[in-house]
Design a protein around this nucleic acid. Structure first.
Length: 874
RNA sequence: GCGACUGUGGCGAAAUCGGUAGACGCCCGAGACUUAAAAUCUUGUGCCAGCAAUGGCGUGCCGGUUCGAGUCCGGCCAGUCGCACCA
């Protein structure tokens, strides 16, 4: 037992705890076959410059889980690193001339210092920076393994092209169809790119979702929808006579193939639509100026799907007809801007009566709509919209009256017999295009030889090292202008050749970093046996914005690594997943002339409240003038509502920041930043500190003797053990940290009212304070570190065992029940534990207020819910 | 456009399996301490009526199931996130 200063000084407390952890090397993860392992992982940050509140929230959540599991006796791995390749480094270089490498390394060291200030228990000896050759050489190696297995191929695909800057643009660099820097109209351009055959794994990726019961249902649903497995039929429409004039006659095998999941509507086809990039449309464009104009127009747009899907539905007739495979009728072919070349066959049969997009298209161009599906009330009304439900077939020849399943089967069979179609499983998921025409990324290890074609870089020449001193300038990647990088000899014939200058999609790096943390120093391969010990990740924590892409690619990589014989355990990388919500803050602004808004940082604003506490008005502190109150929005530069974590740590301490983050919202919900809220968190820590300080000033507490406790002492003891039980359940099982902290606050409030100073009073208080220090240790580790020692406990709290609730202390003599009449609350009764239903009903019926409501009516039904309530129905 | 999610006091939230709506905290009000203020402590606080006991209303909107619905079902409205080259 040591004495404590009377007032809580977070800066000193936090420095002392951090010094202790550093001296003891407390955070180092050790493989220990004798202990259960727990791998707790946060999504690593992009080193953008400074930590923001979203990072703080993310890492506080994983730190609490990691520290809790450690107290549960597990061998815990909680690593951290940086997702160091990416576009912002190139943008910074364009703006300020600093090479991306220099900018990135500086940001990483700055953010690492900020992370240490927050007391996160990361094992920094395992730090990964993905821009280092020791890391990325292994993804080059894996890529070449996949190349040898035939899981990698090269094909043309479209990109956003800026014709002024002569460069490829990211979707986010296209603003209203124009390049962000040049302002030029963006065009679609086809270039050759490398692809990974993720579609070969589509079935596994969708089927294994069922095993991920530790994932939020929303994420599993989104992934399944993204993969979009569907059972359908591929149908061939023969090109009609006379179409040849518009076509190169020998092409297309004389037919146009479509994919549909609704073969039951085949008799409702009134035209066929193809994508603007479909070969049939391109061929027609060579002979028809109108078609050519449409194809050109389709090129003048972003490649983003959201942009394509929201644009007005437009099309052009190709002047080509095809023959319906079952009716023999001629139907026209149109090119339409809502048909995607990358999905299915790039052609769809149009059934305007039963598909909404076809309905809109047919309405716009005056094309016929044939009803072939009847609903329960007979023929559907399609004057306002298509009828897209399943139903029974009408106007469908031999298939009349069949339901969806029967129609699917028999129409598919009929087409197969005529060799005019086949059943097919299709995926919305497309193969993963991994080429990026960027400098700051991992070089793709391929060499182009005039004689040998694309040749993989031999293993002994890996890694292909990215030169770190180049400066992007907004035009094409500097790698394409650096002969010392791209000039090389063909590995197979020795002839002078050119190295690939594209780099990998940065999702490549983030798809396997979780595995490399197990053995970041292994120089002999991608992974060693330590990966088998630590994998899979037991708990992954990150933003919901990664629900589809990052998590899908990481799952894909896990399976690729497994199938390449690497020592990864299991079929899935992440057993449990927690997606935390955004950090939002209030916004304030002034209207500028012309309607523009001048956003003002919340830190510079004072808010005035009415008597109820509702905000009335706000003023700018600098000039006292009024500002307008906007909504709550995600913290961002554009709304100027960001709060710098470092400023708050300096003013309130890291523990107060951590406590506030965990208390204010449950982790999945958005969290609203509030300066008043952080004051409240700091206030709680001050109270707790003072309580311990006053308690230990009285000297060591005597041993607790449970038997002779008074009712008041028993009540506090029960509260202590209830808190321990609730805290463990909320933190360990539910991940509902806010209610755990609320329970701790209730215990502090109870302690505040508990005034005795006898030996047993002090013993009961000591037990409660020990419980608080231990339970709060994962959330507020610094203050817990000091209080735990001050309370006279041996060892540091970081190494302490998680407290166990004593069932004997939880027992209570009486329980309170609620009495309802017709489901409305009318009174409360207290009965001894173990009372019979008869005794409970008798007590309920004699409750004063209940008597009034029962008077004069017969009771029709009596409901007793054990431990909860009594309800009389009259 | 497609997919997913969210909606409860002045505010953040709680109610874990259909059983007391608003725990805990913020804001705000009253009081104590103080020359004064800050800090701290005590206390009140969903809305309406009432001195009170108590009653009525109340979980985005409309309807349904149930002795009982914030929770389950159907339909709407509003907002947020993702859409393949931001990470």
């Amino acid at each position: 037992m040591t004495t404590l200063p009377e007032t809580y000084q977070p800066a000193a407390v936090e420095a002392a705890a951090q010094a202790y952890w550093s001296e003891q090397d407390s955070f180092r993860a050790r493989e220990d076959a004798g202990r259960e392992k727990f791998y707790c992982l946060s999504m690593f940050p992009y080193p953008s410059g400074r930590l923001h509140m979203g990072h703080v929230r993310n890492y506080t959540i994983s730190d609490v889980i990691a520290r809790y599991q450690r107290m549960r006796g597990k061998a815990v791995l909680h690593p951290m690193g940086f997702d160091a390749f990416g576009l912002p480094a190139e943008n910074a270089a364009i703006k300020s001339g600093v090479p991306p490498a220099e900018w990135t390394y500086a940001n990483m060291s700055y953010m690492k210092r900020q992370l240490s200030q927050l007391g996160f228990a990361f094992d920094w000896s395992r730090e990964i920076a993905t821009c280092r050759p020791e890391y990325y050489r292994w993804e080059q190696w894996l890529f070449l393994q996949l190349y040898k297995k035939g899981l990698v191929y090269r094909k043309n695909s479209v990109v956003n092209w800026d014709p002024v800057d002569n460069t490829v643009l990211a979707n986010e660099q296209v603003i209203d169809g124009r390049g962000w820097r040049s302002g030029a109209l963006v065009e679609q351009r086809e270039i050759a790119q490398w692809f990974l055959k993720i579609t070969d794994y589509a079935d596994q990726l969708v089927d294994d979702l069922q095993t991920l019961d530790g994932w939020p249902d929303a994420v599993r649903t989104m992934q399944a929808n993204w993969i979009g497995r569907s059972q359908g039929v591929e149908i061939d429409f023969a090109l009609a006579d006379g179409s040849g004039e518009k076509l190169a006659p020998a092409d297309f095998g004389g037919k146009l193939t479509v994919y549909t999941t609704r073969p039951d509507t085949l008799f409702g086809v009134s035209f066929v639509s193809v994508a603007a990039q479909h070969p049939l449309a391109l061929a027609a464009a060579q002979r028809d100026a109108k078609v050519a104009a449409f194809v050109e127009e389709a090129k003048q747009s972003s490649v983003a799907e959201a942009a394509l899907a929201t644009q007005e539905k437009k099309g052009v007739a190709l002047g080509v007809d095809v023959i319906h495979p079952l009716t023999g009728e001629k139907v026209p072919v149109w090119a339409a801007n809502f048909v995607l070349m990358g999905y299915g066959t790039g052609a769809v049969m149009a059934v305007p009566a039963h598909d909404q997009r076809d309905w809109e298209f047919a309405s716009a161009y005056g094309l016929p709509k044939k009803i072939v599906i009847a609903g329960p009330q007979g023929l559907p009304d399609i004057t306002a919209a298509a009828y897209t439900e399943y139903g029974s077939l009408v106007n469908s020849g031999a298939f009349e009256g069949k339901d969806f399943d029967a129609a699917f089967e028999s129409i598919a069979s009929a087409l197969e017999q005529k060799s005019a179609g086949r059943r097919r499983t299709n995926y919305r998921l497309r193969d993963w295009g991994v080429s990026r025409q960027r400098y700051w990324g991992c070089p793709i290890p391929i060499i182009y030889c005039a004689d040998c074609g694309a040749v993989p870089v031999p293993d002994d020449q890996l890694p292909v090292v990215l030169p770190e001193n180049l400066r992007p300038d907004g035009a094409a990647s500097p790698l394409t202008r650096t002969p010392s990088f791209y000039e090389c000899a063909c590995p197979s014939c020795g002839k002078p050749s050119r190295r690939e200058t594209d780099t990998f999609d940065t999702f490549f790096e983030s798809s396997w970093y979780y595995a490399r943390y197990a053995c970041p120093d292994f120089a002999g391969g991608m992974l060693d046996e330590r990966a088998k010990y630590w994998l899979p990740v037991d708990q992954y924590v990150g933003g919901i914005e990664h629900a589809v892409l990052h998590l899908l690619y990481a799952r894909f990589f896990h399976k690729l690594m497994r199938d390449s014989g690497l020592p990864v355990a299991g079929n899935e990388p992440f057993t449990r997943l927690l997606c935390q919500g955004m950090v939002v803050a209030g916004t304030y602004y002034r209207e500028l002339p012309g309607g523009k808004k001048d956003w003002i940082n919340p830190a510079d604003v004072d808010v005035q409240y009415d008597e109820r506490g509702a905000p009335l008005s706000a003023t700018l502190r600098a000039d006292g003038g009024p500002v307008l109150i906007g909504g709550r929005e995600k913290m961002s530069k554009s709304k100027n509502n960001g709060v710098d974590p470092e400023t708050i740590i300096n003013s309130h301490g890291a523990d107060a920041v951590r406590l506030f983050m965990m208390f204010t919202s449950p982790p999945e919900q958005s969290l609203e930043w509030s300066d008043a809220g952080i004051d409240g968190a700091a206030r709680f820590l001050k109270r707790l500190w003072r309580m311990v300080s006053e308690h230990v000033a009285g000297g060591p507490a005597p041993a607790l003797e449970a038997a002779p406790l008074s009712a008041v002492q028993k009540d506090l003891r029960r509260k202590t053990h209830q808190t321990i039980a609730k805290f463990g359940d909320d933190v360990g099982r539910r991940y509902q940290f806010n209610t755990a902290i609320a329970a701790a606050m209730e215990l502090v409030n109870a302690l505040q009212k508990f005034e005795g100073s006898t030996d047993q009073d002090r013993a009961v208080r000591q037990e409660a304070l020990n419980a608080l220090a231990a339970c709060l240790a994962p959330i507020t580790p610094h203050i817990s570190h000091t209080l735990w020692t001050a309370l006279g406990n041996a060892g540091a709290v970081i190494d302490a065992a998680w407290p166990e609730a004593d069932p004997a202390a939880l027992v209570s003599d009486a329980i309170k029940l609620v009495v309802q009449v017709n489901g409305k609350l009318r009174g409360q009764i207290e009965v001894p534990v173990g009372s019979s239903n008869e005794a409970i009903l008798a007590a309920a019926k004699s409750e004063e207020n209940v008597v009034k409501f029962l008077a004069g009516s017969a009771i029709k039904k009596e409901i007793v819910v054990a431990g909860k309530l009594v309800n009389f129905v009259i």
